[in-house]
Computed example of a mutant assay.
Amino acid sequence: MIRRSGFILLLALLLVPTAQADPSAIQRGAYLFALGGCASCHTDSDNGGEPLAGGLAMPTPFGTFYTPNISADPQQGIGAWSNADFIRAMRRGISPEDEHYYPAFPYTAYSLMSDAELHDLKAYLDSQPASAVPSKAHQLNFPFRYRSLLALWKWLYLDGQRFSPDPNRSEQWNRGAYIVNGPGHCVECHSPRTLLGGLDSDHLLEGTPDGPDGETVPGLTAASNPEFGQWLDEDIQFALETGMMLNGDFFSGTMGKVVDNSTSQLSEADRAAIAVYLKSFAKPPQ
């Protein structure tokens, strides 16, 4: 009798339809996916990598990081993660196995996102094809291979606060601030780092010679980049949409991928908000 009851219960569980994500949540998550430029880092497109399977090498002064598989595969990707697992990773940089993630994964920026946004992003990722390609191990210099040291790093550089609008600024400016500092994480690439790899908060958006793949990343303030200080809002919007700069050249390298996978897919309103926010830093002091 017990065996029969157990069989009936198992059969009932198997016959219960799997809960499907709300299509509107997936659609919102797709936009957030583009906003964060996730495809640029988590698909090794130059080497024919599978979508979201990771494997992209990121050389840094601390060693080489490899982006992980974030596909819906339950073993090699994040398909088995709960929403709570995903939020903890995105906000606190902690894996489901309670290991610290390195800040090459910019959770300091993603921590500004709301629960609802992170739920939508997870719904979109879960809707994408799974890839069973294992994530590559990082190749880091001593002593950075010891993840326990990241507890101190987070104490110094991760406050875990959600985005808080500035009541003295316009709604458009605040939207731009949220994108640049949050999911778009522009500030992560366009700012210099301290010796420990944290953002130099005194020089945000002033550029750095130690950008992705050793590229020099230009500043986005008038003091650090007088040429950019001459750009108009519409120049910035056009560049983010098409990749064409004011001098007629096109973005290449990492920024070229950002345009392809992120900014060209954003709404005109969001590109305009980014421009308004950046121009508030680009204007020379009066």
Rank of each mutant, 00 (worst) to 15 (best):
Y157G: 06
A123Q: 02
L15M: 03
Y178V: 00
G29W: 04
L220I: 04
Y101P: 07
E99D: 14
I78T: 11
P68W: 07
Q128L: 09
P61M: 03
P165T: 04
G77D: 15
P165N: 03
Q286S: 15
F163S: 00
G93E: 10
D270N: 07
K136P: 03
Q76V: 04
A177Y: 00
R3H: 05
S224G: 05
S82L: 02
L14F: 05
P61S: 12
S252W: 10
G79E: 09
G256I: 08
L266E: 08
A19H: 10
D85T: 05
L32V: 08
A21C: 05
I179W: 02
I94C: 04
S82R: 01
Q172I: 11
R162A: 06
G229M: 11
A57R: 10
D260A: 15
S111G: 09
E227A: 15
N47S: 13
P284F: 13
D235A: 03
W231A: 12
T194A: 04
A272D: 15
S170Q: 00
Y277H: 08
R169M: 05
A223R: 14
D159C: 07
S114F: 03
I87G: 00
G253L: 03
Y66S: 08
P96H: 08
N225T: 11
Y101W: 11
D210N: 13
S45E: 14
S95G: 14
L35D: 09
R145H: 13
L240E: 11
Y110T: 08
S111Y: 00
Q128R: 14
G93N: 09
S127A: 13
G36I: 07
M90C: 01
N261T: 11
L112D: 09
L278W: 09
C189A: 05
C38P: 12
D202P: 00
Q265L: 14
A275H: 11
E234W: 10
L150K: 02
A282E: 15
D159Q: 03
L118M: 06
E227K: 15
G55T: 15
L52S: 12
F228D: 09
L149S: 12
S262R: 02
V276F: 14
I236W: 10
T216L: 12
R3C: 02
P129M: 01
N225R: 10
Y124T: 06
G253D: 02
E206S: 13
G198T: 04
A269V: 13
M255W: 08
P218K: 06
L150N: 04
L14S: 07
K136C: 01
D260R: 11
D98T: 03
V180E: 01
Y277T: 13
T208V: 06
A19Q: 14
Y107V: 06
E117C: 00
A275M: 04
R28D: 12
M255F: 07
P209S: 13
P192E: 07
S148G: 15
A177G: 04
D159W: 00
A151L: 06
